[in-house]
Amino acid sequence: MIHYVITLLSIGGIYLLLAQALNLQFGFAGLPNFGIVGFFAIGSYASALLTANGNFPVYGAMLIAGLLAALMSFGLARIVLRLRTDYLAIVTLSFSEIVRILVIGEEQITNGPRGVSGIPGIPLLWSPGVNAVVLIIAVNVLVALATHLLVRSPFGRSIRAMRDDEAAFASISKSAVSYKLRVFGLGGFVMGVAGALYAHYFGYISPDQFLPLTTFYVWIAVILGGAGRLSGALIGTIVLTLFLEGSRFLRDVLPFISEVEMASVRIGAIGFALMVLASRRPQGIMGDFTSK
């Protein structure tokens, strides 16, 4: 049982990082990023390619992965931030598909659809026996702390003001765009690091693992929990993971439902929950920034 729980914590932890990053971008700054999986993929591939065939230190590669994703995020934001929110959502979604297809197409660099294997695991400084889950949880705590400090800072107050009323914010400060750029970059960094953790945790990555569905799962977690609250991302991710994994156990006591049917029911229930929450309780389980 312990290995199952550890796996659950590791994978859930990686998703939680993505949810925290989205919460920063959308929840605190109001920027709808639907390209999450693209930055995740950039981080994954950067760290994997740096370490798979050489002696490049894993921690260094993970840092570079985060920085590269942040840079791409920053660059994309520069282009798209003057678009209205609907356009922004679709353009970022398209960006993630561009990343995925580039990974498929640029075989010389990425090994294309055949994926990258032999990615070294995460070396831990104190004890090699401790699972990667420790690092994943540690990074999550770090990101949560940093976000907490950030939103309490003058910078945090500014981005929240910007989210709540951009026109008013623009009238008192000209730096809305610069704030947005920085938030986008920061979120991208976290997504890139999450991708690197993912690559080193699994040891094998291929383009099929970076479909837009991952992005939507992260969105579901943030909306479920409540956008713009630190606890929202956490609760949302836990609820989503509990539901996805819990339904496996539910079936063990309901033998008349086949797994084939359960697979449909599982996705259907997520869809249904999303519809109900979005239309009846858009502030999520924990309440969002509007219900403090």
Binding site: F216, W219, I220, I223, I267, G268, I270, G271, F272, A273, L274, M275, A278, S279
Partner: peptide, 8 residues
């Protein structure tokens, strides 16, 4: 987001 839910 709700329409994504409907799609699923």
């Amino acid at each position: 987001v709700a329409s994504v839910g409907l799609a699923l």
